[in-house]
Computed example of a mutant assay.
Amino acid sequence: MSQLIKVEVAYATPEKQQIIALDVTQGTTVFQAAQQSGICDVFPEIQLEDAKIGIFGKAVRNPKEEVLRDADRVEIYRPLIIDPKAARANRAAKAAVKAKADKSA
């Protein structure tokens, strides 16, 4: 008889978040838990085959091979809209313009 472990599968958009708790058999992979959770029924836009997936904020290289441990939280990440370096550069440029405007005023 296989032992069950408790895990969670989480996904969030700016409008909605969902954390699904489930019991899976020991030896279940990250990918299998995401499938079993039914999270794709709640968020049909998720493409599990292509999605970046992690455990507690740490990306997993091979979700189909990484085995879960009791109390793990599987997180499915949305694709980035903008590169973090570009976003940082944009914020810095805006701050410089604002600082210059404040200094002129």
Rank of each mutant, 00 (worst) to 15 (best):
K58A: 08
F43M: 02
D41Y: 05
V97T: 15
A12F: 01
A96T: 09
A92D: 14
P84S: 06
P44K: 10
T13E: 01
K94T: 03
I46C: 08
R91V: 08
K52I: 11
Q18I: 09
P44R: 11
Q18F: 03
M1V: 08
I20C: 09
D83H: 15
A33Q: 01
S104F: 14
E66H: 13
E66M: 13
N62E: 15
P84A: 00
T29V: 02
I46Q: 07
A71R: 14
K16N: 11
D83S: 11
C40Y: 03
T29P: 06
D83T: 10
L48W: 06
A12L: 02
R73K: 10
A105L: 13
A33D: 02
D23H: 11
L4F: 12
E75L: 03
R91P: 02
K85A: 10
I39G: 03
K103A: 15
I20R: 09
A93H: 12
D102N: 15
V97P: 01
P79Y: 05
D83A: 10
V7H: 04
V30H: 00
A59K: 15
Q3M: 14
Y11K: 05
V24C: 02
A96Q: 14
R91H: 07
V42I: 15
M1A: 10
G57D: 04
A59E: 14
R78H: 06
T25N: 14
E75Q: 05
A95D: 12
F31H: 07
R69G: 06
E49D: 15
K85Y: 06
K100G: 04
E49I: 13
F43G: 06
N90M: 14
M1R: 06
F43R: 04
T28Q: 07
I5H: 04
A10S: 13
A34C: 02
I39D: 07
E15C: 08
A93P: 06
K64M: 13
K64L: 09
Y77E: 01
F56S: 08
K6F: 05
E49K: 15
D72L: 04
R91I: 10
V42S: 12
A92W: 09
S2R: 12
A95E: 12
A96C: 05
Q26I: 10
S104Q: 15
P84N: 05
K52Q: 12
Q26V: 11
I82C: 12
C40L: 07
Q35L: 14
L48S: 06
A101H: 09
E65Q: 12
F31P: 02
G54Y: 06
A34E: 00
D23G: 03
A59T: 14
F43E: 03
I55E: 03
P79D: 08
Q17W: 08
A87L: 13
G27E: 01
G57N: 07
Q36K: 15
A89L: 14
I5S: 04
A95M: 11
A96W: 06
I39V: 11
L22V: 03
N62H: 15
F56L: 05
A92M: 15
A95V: 07
E45Y: 08
A71H: 14
K100V: 03
Q47P: 00
V24Q: 04
T25Q: 14
T28C: 07
E65S: 01
D102C: 08
Q26H: 12
